[in-house]
Design a protein around this nucleic acid. Structure first.
Length: 721
DNA sequence: GGGCAGGAGA
């Protein structure tokens, strides 16, 4: 019905403007209120034009607005008084360009027109132009009013120009514009919050005469986005106490704060309040309820909330997928993603980065590639969020080259995409490239953050660049003023420890307040590599006191004593483990062949093709022995005699997985990617190097810590891991 | 002619 009316209006309009000559104007006061055929008075014409413009904006037709403007000119209508309405018409039809053209031609402009131009530029993310108009109006002596200020502050925060924002605030005060007006003050709170100046934001709220729900919500969001979630909750309580009713937006924001705090108690309380106040069908607050539950680890509750929603939108779907990924339910996240596509819900970079993360945690390269194709289809392959996720995916799948291609094509490189690229190189032992990028950051005026240093130090660590690592570590405090975290120390302890500088590593540990068990285990592990039993004796009791039930420590100690042949101590540790019910994580390897994942444990005969696998294993071992492979029985951690030790090595899970993949894929160009849940064993490492030479194929292995790329008898880690 | 809100990356 509505559509019919609009079309009729449009038809009338077109009729009118194709015959402009039929209209002549008579000034009502000069000629009396007479009406001649085809002749109307000025006020009648104004009325008519207004009505036409209204219809144009309803159907958003820029061409018709233009036609009206032309008609006014050709028929001699005094356009001057109509400029504001025409500019407004263009803006409402979405043509900011035509509006601006007319705006610039106008000899005089009403304050409303200035304000409309500013608001439109801001709505179109053209903050620079908005500020340009704002400055021009001040220069031309037009006083900005509360409407101007309520929209212009956003432009300063978008461009991150705090000084100019503050100046505009001063001007607002000087001009006596009512800054305690709820619209102006909420825009101010938002601006100061985006600058991270929460004290100023708070002062604005405290000084506001009328405190409405929007003003409070702006402050709540500000605190939460600055990471001060407890404060956000406090403001919410304050608002309730002052008798201001929360709305959908307030609930959404305060629930995010609860989720960030992991505050399930308050989260549930607010969920109850939403139900009580009848906001159950409001998508925004329900999305936040969903997010709150998944951030508190209750992913099943999130799914329940999702199911109850009649019309989940793009954000709701994305939030669910992100929650699933965060809670380790990657497979389900992918299922939901496919369902989202089937339901024709539009995707954006948020959705894609979450679903790509699911692929990278499972190292699902094929699935990831398919999603990369979707990313391209949506034109988001140069977007920094989707890009960082793609870089991460390829890095975690051991392919730094495609990662670099994505990185090089990014529209904008920020610290996160930079960190992702450095981290990809680090995991794959491409140390020099990682360092090159790190040094490039200075030229690009990109400020490295704590994550940058974790990545760079890891790169030094994995590539054995000890001196470089030490220098960079020292520069963190001296040149970059970055607070040292446990991750940074862990990298350094590992770097020093593995390179044999154990005393220095131990000294470094002393600088750490309350070192955790992971850090201690790093040092213990270095002791194991270098056979430093004396140091182990010195520190082991402290580690065991700190975390008596930590399986990793026991396994490490048991492995250390086993490699030294101290079987009595091994037995002792194993019995303690039994007593304390500490479980050892069994070694497991898997390989993806023809889109099917095959899993192997050491000495595993459960695979239906076991006979063929062991035959292949025999064949390979014979060939590598000819090339000089000697089984390294130091890596057998059981008390067996020589012959049995060799047999035990022989059927490690990574060897089985590789034998299977080689038996199954005869095409030499098919890449082989093995994954292992623990670190790859030293003997297997040597064996795979030889195999890569024998079969002339590239083999990559992702273990718990990093990648090994084997080619022609060598490994990318240069035997340093 | 106007302000405030929900989802993402290492």
């Amino acid at each position: 019905m509505m559509q019919g009316t609009r079309s009729a209006g449009a038809a009338r309009l077109l009729n009118f403007i194709t015959e402009p000559k039929q209209v002549t104007y008579l000034h009502s006061s000069a000629y009396g209120a007479q009406r001649v055929s085809n002749t109307i008075t000025l006020s009648q014409a104004s009325h008519f034009y207004s009505s036409l413009l209204r219809q144009c904006t309803q159907i958003k037709s820029v061409t018709n607005v233009k036609a009206i403007q032309t008609h006014m000119i050709t028929s001699g209508f005094p356009i001057l008084n109509f400029g504001s309405k025409l500019v407004d018409g263009y803006l409402k039809c979405g043509s900011i360009l035509d509006a601006r053209k007319l705006f610039d031609e106008m000899p005089e402009r009403h304050i409303v027109t200035w304000n409309s131009m500013i608001a439109s530029y801001i709505g179109n993310k053209r903050s620079k132009d908005a500020i340009g108009i704002f400055r021009r109006m001040v220069l031309e002596g037009v006083f900005p009013d509360e409407y101007t200020f309520s929209s212009v502050f956003k432009a300063f925060s978008e461009l991150d120009i705090e000084r100019d924002g503050r100046r505009a605030h001063s001007l607002c005060v000087v001009l006596g514009v009512n800054a305690s007006n709820a619209f102006v003050s909420s825009a101010l709170v938002d601006m100061y919050a985006k600058f991270g100046k929460m004290r100023d934001a708070r002062l604005v709220l405290d000084g506001a005469m009328e405190k409405d729900v929007v003003l409070f919500t702006a402050l709540i969001v500000g605190y939460s986005q600055q990471g001060e979630d407890a404060e956000a909750l406090e403001v919410f309580r304050c608002m309730i106490n002052e008798g201001v009713n929360a709305n959908e937006y307030t609930f959404a924001s305060v629930l995010i704060a609860c989720g960030n705090l992991g505050d399930l108690g308050d989260g549930k309380l607010i969920h109850g309040l939403i139900v009580k106040m009848g906001f159950e069908s409001a998508v925004a607050s329900q999305t936040s309820v969903l997010t709150m539950y998944s951030k508190c680890g209750l992913i099943d509750e999130s799914m329940k909330v999702f199911k109850q929603l009649a019309h989940p939108n793009q954000v709701t779907w994305t939030s669910l997928i992100a929650g699933l990924v965060q809670n380790g339910r990657e497979e389900m996240a992918l299922t939901k993603f496919r369902k989202m596509i089937r339901n024709s819900v539009n995707l954006n970079s948020y959705t894609l980065s979450s679903v790509l993360r699911a692929c990278s945690s499972l190292a699902m390269l094929e699935e990831g590639r398919q999603i990369h194709a979707i990313v391209k289809k949506f034109g988001l392959d140069r977007d920094k969020y989707a890009g960082a996720a793609l870089i991460d995916l390829y890095g975690k799948c051991g392919s730094t080259q495609p990662a670099r291609l994505v990185f090089d094509s990014l529209m904008e490189v920020d610290v996160v995409s930079m960190n992702s690229m450095i981290y990809s190189y680090a995991q794959n032992s491409v140390g020099p490239e990682a360092l090159d990028l790190f040094h490039m950051m200075k030229d690009m005026s990109l400020q490295p953050n704590d994550v940058t240093f974790v990545s760079v130090l890891l790169a030094c660590n994995n590539a054995g660049l000890v001196e470089e690592g030490c220098q960079i570590f020292a520069s963190m405090k001296n040149d970059y003023n970055i607070e040292l975290s446990k991750d940074h120390y862990a990298c350094m302890v590992d770097l020093l420890g593995r390179s044999g500088r154990l005393e220095e590593a131990e000294m470094l540990m002393k600088q750490v307040t309350n070192p955790d068990v992971v850090l201690w285990r790093t040092l213990l592990s270095a002791c194991r590599i270098h056979g430093k039993v004396d140091m182990v004796e010195r520190i082991k009791n402290r580690v065991l006191e700190l975390a008596p039930e930590d399986g990793g420590t026991h396994v490490l100690l048991s492995n250390l004593y086993a490699s030294k042949g101290n079987w009595n101590q091994v037995i002792e540790i194993k019995s303690t483990m039994k007593e304390m019910k500490v479980k050892k994580n069994p070694a497991m390897s898997w390989v993806d062949v023809d889109k099917e994942v095959h899993t192997f444990m050491a000495g595993d005969w459960s695979h239906p093709c076991s006979r063929e696998i062991f035959e292949k294993l025999d064949e390979l071992t014979e060939k590598v022995k000819i090339l000089g492979y000697v089984p390294d029985t130091r890596f057998v951690l059981q008390d067996l005699d020589g012959d049995n030790k060799e047999k035990s090595l022989y059927c490690h899970s990574e060897k089985l997985a590789l034998a299977f993949a080689l038996w199954k894929t005869s095409n030499k160009t098919t890449p082989i990617r093995i994954m292992k849940n623990l670190r790859v064993c030293g003997d297997c490492h040597t064996w795979i190097k030889f195999v890569s030479k024998v079969v002339q194929r590239e083999i990559s292995a992702r273990d718990a810590k990093r990648f090994h790329h084997f080619k022609d008898g060598f490994c990318s880690c240069r035997d340093y891991w």
